[in-house]
Design a binder for these strands. Structure first.
Lengths: 235, 235
DNA sequence: GAGTAATGTTAGGTCCACCTAAATCGTATT
DNA sequence: AATACGATTTAGGTGGACCTAACATTACTC
């Protein structure tokens, strides 16, 4: 006999606490899925710096827990529950990053690692208080959107600076967040979220790109430019 | 051939990161040691809610890592390294508690568990910034002394309210921090660090104590009173 | 000083999350 | 259609941190 459930008093599906590694896997899988393709074993292994064999094993456990759908040799996809968990972790991570920058004077190049550890032990209450304390930010310091408490996220895709049309005025919306050295360099170029930037020349054979940030003209490689997401400025 | 070491450039003994359980053991052992006796296996087991057998095993590993001195059937003592580690964890815990109360509006009854988790993943830098942000507090919200960055701590022993002489004016310096219900009750009685309190009567046979907090007269059990540390008011 | 109660340890086992080495699968090519 | 290569999985193993059950030691009491 199944339990009769009232209107909205579903006894809370008890999202029993996930381990830190599990949360890391889910975040990684989410990132690959957002880029279209299902997450391949090797991709996950590389991103988390662990052996591919370990991923096979863990992914089995994730499937047992109903967090991913798994077909041997076919890669993994998040289930609805897995996606919820991934977004919860992502929210924690990004709120923490924003809080460290806005409330504790951290530089945007040094928040990632700290957040990477704290995201696994901070309670939802703490995250909500942090968010409230800095005015409910919508993005983290690198421009990445912060999922809401309810688990929704603004997934609008963006162009990279490398792909921007020459001569078009654009605005930086987001930059890669993991490499502190890159972040310091981007900062020195003025390439921060919100900054206006125009691609003025693309040298052939994957050569350097010429960009104008504010009134300064700079040269950057395509690799760097591809880590900078931009939106065209509607003026 | 041993490495020649210069004045103060000892190459940093690399206090390689301890696991969360290890930090918890060290904190527990520290607490027992502070009360005189070496920590007994059973004491540790009970405090950490794990089986005594597990403690025997873990304590072996702590000894291998040079964090405790261990004699079978004789209990454990922290080594200098163990004590340093314990105090580092204690500092994290107490700074976090203070920060949550002063910067994020937490009540003193709800910070313990949050701090218990965060203390294992917060970096020293974060702890220092938190401490600076709230004015380098000297005690946590329950009155417990916060170890300094350098690992010193004010260990002045205190009387409990239960042992205070009848009729003496005293001031609450510290209360037990683990039981949220007790903290809420203490709060309702006005028994917060800094509050003046006078024991006016001790009923026989471990009966209730009569105390005056501010101008109010209250009755409390000896168990509760023994969780309240006081210092006599020099007037 | 013997016997028992209390305390502590050993033995053997589990689960998690990783590892390396050795299959195996899928497919891209010829 | 056979093969070779890369991607993936299986097999077997490690260390950490816990468990229960059985055994050992110490301490206490009479």
């Amino acid at each position: 006999m199944t339990v009769r459930r009232r209107k909205k008093s579903k006894p809370a599906p008890r999202p029993e606490p996930l381990t830190a590694p599990v949360e890391d896997y889910l975040k990684a899988i989410y990132a690959f899925e957002r880029d279209g393709h299902a997450a391949a074993t090797n991709d996950i292994a590389q991103r988390l710096s662990i052996a591919p064999a370990s991923v096979s094993g863990m992914v089995q456990r994730l499937a047992d827990q109903g967090l991913v759908a798994y077909e041997r040799y076919r890669g993994v996809r998040l289930t609805a529950a897995g996606r919820r968990a991934a977004l919860r972790t992502l929210r924690r991570h990004r709120v923490i990053e924003a809080y460290l920058v806005h409330a504790l004077g951290y530089g945007w190049d040094s928040v990632h690692d700290e957040a990477e550890r704290l995201e696994h032990s901070a309670s939802d209450i703490l995250i909500d208080r942090m968010a409230a304390a800095i005015g409910e930010p919508v993005t983290d310091p690198h421009g990445a959107p912060i999922p809401t408490r309810e688990g929704t996220i603004d997934e609008t895709p963006h162009q990279t600076l490398a792909d921007a049309p020459v001569g078009a005025r654009t605005r930086v919306v987001r930059v890669g967040d993991e490499d502190p050295g890159m972040l310091r360099y981007l900062d020195s170029l003025g390439l921060r979220p919100g900054a206006e930037v125009m691609l003025t020349n693309r040298a052939p054979f994957d050569g350097p790109l010429t960009i104008e940030v504010g009134s300064a003209t700079q040269q950057v490689g395509a690799a760097l430019a591809s880590r900078v997401l931009v939106a065209s400025v509607a003026d």
